[in-house]
């Protein structure tokens, strides 16, 4: 049976985690939106997923254990699950949403269009990587997680992540160089 002190401790821990989660919001909302958008091909839905990640995290704070994984890595685990659900449920083929980039860039239309084409090329190249390689690159570059945090999200060792990172970049370079 839980004592009053036990309940108080649990409530204190939840409040502490909730404050930490709220503190991560400004920076990690953007990172998660970029990470999700790169996987699903839609900035619009990437933003929705980022918002949903924080709501899900808030609901699951009771089960969060800091010692097993840092909170930012935990957020990306939730994001990854939502991305997988999204792709499964919507049964969408991976597409590149050029409009997402164009709307971001109010400058010279030709530059903007070129940027859209760059996105299309890189997304095409990324789609030829293995899913683990794609996951490593998006977590490292768009999520801006360290290789240690990336390893925690993926349930792999730091060494395995660094090795996948090198192999993924080498393959990406070859594909982009071949075009």
């Amino acid at each position: 049976m839980r004592t009053a002190t036990g309940r108080q401790n649990s409530s204190d821990a939840r409040n502490m985690h909730e404050a930490e989660l709220a503190g991560l919001y400004p920076e990690y909302y953007d990172r998660i939106a970029r990470y999700a958008a790169a996987h699903i091909g839609s900035r619009l839905d990437g933003e929705d997923i980022a918002g949903e990640v924080f709501l899900r995290a808030l609901r699951s704070l009771g089960s969060y254990r800091k010692q097993s994984v840092p909170m930012q890595a935990w957020l990306f685990q939730i994001a990854h699950n939502l991305v997988v659900d999204y792709l499964r449920q919507k049964n969408r083929r991976r597409t590149v949403d050029i409009e997402s980039v164009i709307l971001e860039s109010p400058g010279n239309p030709e530059t903007v269009v070129e940027r859209g084409i760059d996105l299309e090329r890189v997304a095409g190249a990324m789609s030829r990587l293995t899913s683990d390689q794609r996951q490593v690159l998006t977590l490292r570059f768009l999520g801006e997680l360290s290789s240690k945090e990336t390893a925690e999200v993926m349930g792999k060792t730091d060494g395995a992540v660094r090795e996948m990172q090198r192999a993924a970049l080498a393959k990406l370079r070859t594909i982009l160089g071949d075009e």
Partner: peptide, 24 residues
Amino acid sequence: LLSAAAKSKSAFAFTPQPHAKTAA
């Protein structure tokens, strides 16, 4: 390798819409 990394990072970079972030 770092050039490929920079290319993929910049291709997917975007700033979420402020009103979407505020609403979320």
